[in-house]
Design a protein around this nucleic acid. Structure first.
Length: 429
DNA sequence: TCTGGGGTCCTAGGACCC
DNA sequence: TCTGGGGTCCTAGGACCC
């Protein structure tokens, strides 16, 4: 029995999560918007049928969409992350070898299991029954093929939501791959798609038949791997352990233009504090802090400006106050007055494990004591925010959480049904 | 007023060394 | 003066993913 990888993927994940608590929308067109209500990031089948494209800017389609009865939600990541955790723990019952690939996708190693389609059906039914989310299952000998099998299960209802690609006769496999555009392949983005099409490679089948060595020389080893995976040779393993991040980024577009250095500094401090929390959660220290600020990208009437600066730290640190201090230093050097900024971001780079910290023999004892006191403050900060919700406690430099000039827009946010007591759904007896 | 946020990997090119 | 090959390390930028 050949190796079998299953990819389980939640259909229209964010929309499906929102519908759990709004059964009245089960057959209505629904979209979920990105942060700042910027663009469409998830669509129900009905919204797709109306021709709303992925990534459409909301301000451009809002008028027409509401006329067509589309319901829009601001993204509610607390809800999606919670549903994702439940989804992953259900899948854990079906295979010990898993890779939680994204918030709504998980690879499972099915080993030499027979009756794979029946197993796929059981997975679908269990997830649907226990948490109400619709999923599709793609099964194949490699991850890249499992992705394609999942695509087929989603697009063609005849599969009943489960496609075991590896079990199909060769002629059938060829016919199916001839029917899928090359851009659907995992790892082929729009740039690569254009380049491949120029060489006459239009369908997945064309890519599968192409010479891997030539593609490696012309493009990259990644594409070579993809071709081999399409032929059924596994080149990508399951990554079961969650690796530590190599960089941490916290960034946001502003709800409205920000011009003053003080407002910008408050935003940068808040982002640095958030990044520092993520850093401590994975027990790492940062060796450098980067800051960037930029103007609106799509405005013709204003000169675009992008400023970025990375400052190394004298000593790797996870101290919010120190990271904020350096971030603000960097900001001062890239800030230009008289510019309307749309977005800022803080990056933590050069991450190393906390356990690897080099103790400096020559650090004076009073400095060591001060460092230890700071670490105590950070621990309390993290504990309080974990217990009472992010942003309960924070450094004063970040400004007050509500009512600040740069806060993001979330006009259509749903309640935190599953993560806040006050937002629990009420059932009428 | 107006187009998300958070990552990874690979490659090319420069600095530096022997 | 400035010649050559080969190696490492770092950074910036591109492409991709969800």
């Amino acid at each position: 029995m050949t190796r079998a990888i299953a990819l389980v993927d939640v259909n229209n994940c964010y929309v499906s999560c929102e519908r759990l608590f709004r059964p009245d929308l089960a057959t209505r067109p629904v979209v979920v918007l990105s942060n700042n209500d910027g663009c469409v990031v998830s669509r129900s089948a009905e919204a797709k049928a109306l021709g709303i494209p992925m990534g459409a800017p909301w301000f451009k389609i809002r008028g027409l969409a509401s006329k067509q009865g589309v319901t829009a939600f601001s993204s509610n990541y607390a809800l999606y992350a919670d549903m994702s955790n439940r989804f992953m723990s259900i899948l854990a019952r079906f295979s010990p070898e898993r890779e939680a690939y994204s918030i709504d996708e998980c690879f499972l190693d099915l080993g030499g299991q027979a009756e794979r389609v029946a197993l796929g059906r059981r997975i679908r039914q269990t997830v649907q029954r226990e948490i109400g989310l619709p999923v599709c299952v793609g099964i194949a000998p490699t991850k890249t093929l499992a992705k394609l099998a999942n695509h087929l299960a989603k697009k063609q209802s005849a599969w009943g939501g489960v496609c075991d690609f590896g079990a199909l006769p060769e002629g059938r496999q060829e016919a199916l791959l001839r029917g899928i555009e090359v851009g659907e392949v995992w790892g082929v983005g729009w740039r690569l798609r254009e380049a491949l099409e120029r060489r006459g490679i239009r369908t997945v089948w064309d890519l599968r038949q192409a010479d891997a060595e030539t593609l490696r020389q012309r493009f990259s080893v990644i594409l070579e791997r993809t071709v081999r995976e399409l032929r059924g040779t596994p080149c990508l393993g399951l990554e079961q352990a969650v690796a530590d991040k190599q960089q941490i980024l916290s960034s946001r577009s502003f709800g409205r233009p920000v011009a003053s250095c003080e407002d910008l500094a408050a935003a940068v401090a808040a982002y640095a504090a958030r990044a520092a929390e993520k850093l401590r959660r994975q027990d790492s220290l940062a060796g450098a802090v980067g800051v960037y600020i930029r103007t609106y990208r799509h405005r013709e009437d204003e000169r675009p400006y992008y400023g970025q600066l990375v400052l190394p730290l004298a000593e790797a640190s996870d101290d919010s106050l120190e990271l904020i201090r350096v971030a603000r230093l960097a900001l001062q050097r890239i800030y230009r007055p008289g510019v309307r900024y749309a977005k800022a971001g803080v990056m933590l780079l050069g991450l190393v494990p906390r356990s690897g910290r080099q103790a400096d023999l020559f650090t004076p004892p009073e400095v060591v004591v001060r460092q230890q006191r700071r670490e105590g403050v950070m621990q309390v900060l993290d504990q309080v925010n974990r217990r009472w919700g992010g942003g309960t406690l924070g450094p004063g430099a970040a400004g007050l959480k509500h009512g600040v000039a740069w806060a993001m827009r979330r006009d259509h946010v749903s309640p935190a049904y599953t993560t806040a007591w006050r937002d629990l759904a009420r059932v009428k007896a």
